[in-house]
């Protein structure tokens, strides 16, 4: 979530700066640029790896799978996941 917020803030800011750098200085154009930056940042944050959004539920299965003891990893090869003690 924090990544998302930071991305959106950075997106807005960079949109503003880029528009300014492109020599478009009217208020309307600056607002448009900022909007573009925010949209871009949102897309980017959604496309990023799930882990980056900082949500806990994103990959618990993966993590637990990795932390599982050796024997159980070996057993999960038969498609049936043994429950972890």
């Amino acid at each position: 979530m924090f990544t998302f917020i930071v991305f959106i803030i950075a997106g807005a800011l960079t949109g503003l700066i880029t528009t300014y750098a492109l020599d478009m200085k009217t208020r309307k154009e600056l607002a448009q640029g900022t909007r573009g930056g925010v949209i871009r940042a949102k897309i980017r944050a959604l496309l990023g790896p799930k882990k980056m959004s900082g949500r806990r539920g994103a990959s618990p299965g993966r993590a637990s799978h990795r932390l599982a003891p050796t024997k159980e990893i070996w057993q999960t090869k038969n498609k049936k996941k043994t429950s972890r003690r």
Partner: peptide, 8 residues
């Protein structure tokens, strides 16, 4: 060849 690394 225990396959531990394969899971990663």
């Amino acid at each position: 060849r225990c396959g531990n690394c394969q899971t990663f």
